[in-house]
């Protein structure tokens, strides 16, 4: 029989490598798709503005795709997100690839050294992501107006679902939870403490489901952009629902 230091035999309900591989495939595919989208330099078909291009920013005569001025904000927000950190540390860096699975890499600095120490700046990307989210809500409202008249098309609902999922993901952010009330020690004695306690309580359910919100909103962003691109290419029409 093996000694105490032998490899472990803990087997979860499904193969331990399944989740890391799925994470690598999905995140890599999304990153590649985002880069491709940003290089397209256009993402608008009335009244829909691709979420990768919102807000539409142009800086002087610099000839780059407007997406590059914006896309780094949500990308950085997700890259420093506590949930995605868990996902990519496990999947891309195998630190650890799964609980109780031995690690081959001996050098480990965690988040104490460059580059991962930059994850401590997550809150600043949250602030910027909230601004971007406000523009996405504006775009969603615009997606319900066709030639100045209110209407509901399939694309309107795609945009609505996307912005709701993005809002759920943003509200559930750990840094947001900290900001609204988690940073207080004494709710009963702080100015506005009880309101902040209620806010903190309201945010908690979103925070506890941060991972599902993170994945769902990732897919919805891609779906909203794909919808816009299919409309731009004339592959699909935008059916009017009512």
């Amino acid at each position: 029989m093996a000694d105490q230091t032998a490899s472990h035999s803990y087997a979860p309900e499904y193969p331990w490598w399944l989740q890391p591989i799925a994470t690598v495939v999905i995140l890599s595919a999304f990153a590649l798709y985002s880069i491709w989208v940003a290089f397209q330099a256009r993402g608008y078909v009335a009244p829909y503005l691709s979420p990768f291009y919102s807000p539409p920013v142009r800086v002087g005569a610099i000839p780059i795709s407007p997406a590059w001025w914006v896309v780094w904000v949500p990308a950085g927000f997700r890259a420093t997100c506590y949930y995605y950190r868990k996902a990519y540390y496990r999947s891309f860096f195998r630190d650890p690839v799964s609980c109780m699975i031995g690690e081959s890499r001996r050098r480990y600095a965690g988040e104490t050294a460059f580059p991962f120490i930059l994850n401590n700046l997550h809150r600043f990307l949250l602030y910027l992501a909230i601004i971007v989210l406000a523009f996405l809500w504006r775009d969603t409202v615009a997606a319900f107006f066709f030639d100045g008249r209110f209407g509901v098309h399939l694309g309107s609902l795609v945009f609505l679902v996307n912005v709701v999922l993005l809002s759920g993901y943003t509200v559930g952010c750990h840094a947001f939870r900290h900001m609204v009330g988690g940073n207080l020690d004494c709710y009963s004695c702080a100015r506005g403490g009880r309101v902040r306690y209620r806010l903190w309580q309201w945010v908690n359910p979103f925070n506890h489901q941060h991972a599902p919100w993170a994945w769902a909103s990732l897919f919805s962003v891609a779906a909203a952009d794909v919808y816009v691109r299919l409309l731009m290419a004339g592959v699909i029409s935008d059916p009017k629902l009512f």
Binding site: Y82, R85, K86, Y89, R90, D95, P96, C99, M100, Y108, A109, G110, E111, T112, F116, I117
Partner: peptide, 13 residues
């Protein structure tokens, strides 16, 4: 050493 924790949540499991 809280910076060494990379929040992979095995402890919670």
């Amino acid at each position: 050493g809280i910076g060494f924790c990379n929040i992979t949540k095995c402890c919670e499991e």
